[in-house]
Amino acid sequence: MKNSAAQMEEARGIVEGFAAQAGRRPRVLVAELSDDNDSRLQGVAAQDLGEADPNQKIVATGFADLGFDVDVGPRCQLPERAAMQAIDGDVHVVALVAVEGSAGGEVAELRKVLGAGGADDIMVVATDSIAQESGVALDAVFCLGDPIASLVVTLMPEISARFA
């Protein structure tokens, strides 16, 4: 599905407004979580190890096209490592595109470590399948294949309220 031009325009406008107000662009970490990155990574071809998951790339590009600064996590990232990357990059949002293992446990763990690091104001969003599986409260839910613009339009008011 393609982003409708009008929706992209709207999202870009909101993002630009935020950037002028906040002194920086909204920043998101696009991550793929796993409960056990060693065993998961054995299934990944060596040349792909340093690469992001294809869905991660699509979502990351979608955010960047709308004016976000996008951090991309390595494949099969442990929740505490994703939290660390989110904190180090001082992102506003973590967007989860995939969770290997028990979704509920991993997402809850991510939230927990963010909180422990003094970063419970970082928003967490995830795909609908992760949301369904995990049962953990999320700040927003999106479908892979849906326009990122609609997710951005949904998210920005809360990001602005917290950080602008």
Partner: peptide, 14 residues
């Protein structure tokens, strides 16, 4: 064009 950026380096600094 969009002003955004993809900061992917960390995937290679695992």
């Amino acid at each position: 064009k969009s002003g955004g950026s993809v900061l992917g380096d960390r995937t290679r600094m695992a």
